[in-house]
Simulated scan of single mutants.
Amino acid sequence: MNSKYSSLYTSLFLNLIYALFKGLSGYYFQSSWLISIAFYYMILSIMRFLLLRKDRKIKKQLHRKIIEELKTYRFCGYLMFLLNIAVTAIVLQMIHNAKYYEYPGTLIYAFAAYTFYSLISATINLIRYRSINRPILSAAKILSLANALISILALQTALFVQFGDGESSILILNGITGSTVCLSIFIMAILMIVHSTKKIKKLQ
């Protein structure tokens, strides 16, 4: 399998498993926090499945292929708004219900390393795939970047839990970072829609 797509299949599988686990846990424990996380990963899974499915169905004719990819890219931009609703629900849970991520012992350092690797990797890949004019792959990398931003927020909450000592300041900082992440995803969605719409009109 092409390495460009194997990562998509792997991410899709892991997202589905994680969404199912969090959803069942949320239902069992009656936890809106776990259900919010499950909703986020379910939307992420739907978007990745859409990208894979559409890429397999696109015709081989180059001109038509680019237009179809741009339409899929634009649709993912619309779905980013739905993804942002899930992220907003998570952030609100952090602020109003003092919910947080927690990683025991030294596991938090491993998560920190993985988070920064994901952020750097997603940024580099986004730039790389934009340059080769493959909107579907670019959309996949934008999803990876959005997920990396969520990981940064999760890492912050975990670090505050393990090393912080002021609950009110923690809630404020989580609110600031959470709002920044939500705004970033909203801006990415707008840019995806505007950019793809302009290119589709130009090609047509």
Rank of each mutant, 00 (worst) to 15 (best):
N2Q: 03
Y5S: 10
S7D: 12
S11H: 09
S11T: 12
F13P: 06
N15Y: 14
L16M: 05
A19W: 00
F21A: 08
K22Q: 12
G23S: 00
S25F: 10
Y27M: 09
F29T: 14
L34M: 03
I35H: 02
I37Q: 06
Y40F: 14
I46N: 04
R48C: 02
R48S: 07
L51M: 13
R53G: 10
D55K: 14
D55S: 15
D55R: 15
K65R: 09
I66N: 02
F75S: 09
C76W: 00
L79Y: 02
M80T: 13
M80C: 12
L82H: 01
L83I: 11
I85Q: 11
T88R: 06
A89V: 11
A89D: 03
I90A: 06
V91M: 01
K99C: 02
Y101L: 11
A110Y: 09
F111V: 13
A112W: 04
S118R: 13
N125Y: 10
L126I: 15
R128A: 15
S131W: 14
I136N: 11
L137M: 13
A139R: 01
I142S: 06
I142A: 04
L143E: 05
L145E: 00
L145M: 01
L145N: 00
A146K: 06
A148D: 03
I152K: 08
A154F: 07
T157R: 02
F163Q: 01
S168M: 09
S169C: 01
N174H: 03
N174Y: 02
G175H: 04
G175I: 06
I176W: 00
T180E: 10
T180G: 09
C182P: 10
L183G: 10
L183N: 03
I185E: 08
F186A: 15
F186T: 15
I193T: 05
V194F: 13
V194E: 07
S196H: 03
L203S: 03
L203H: 12
Q204T: 15
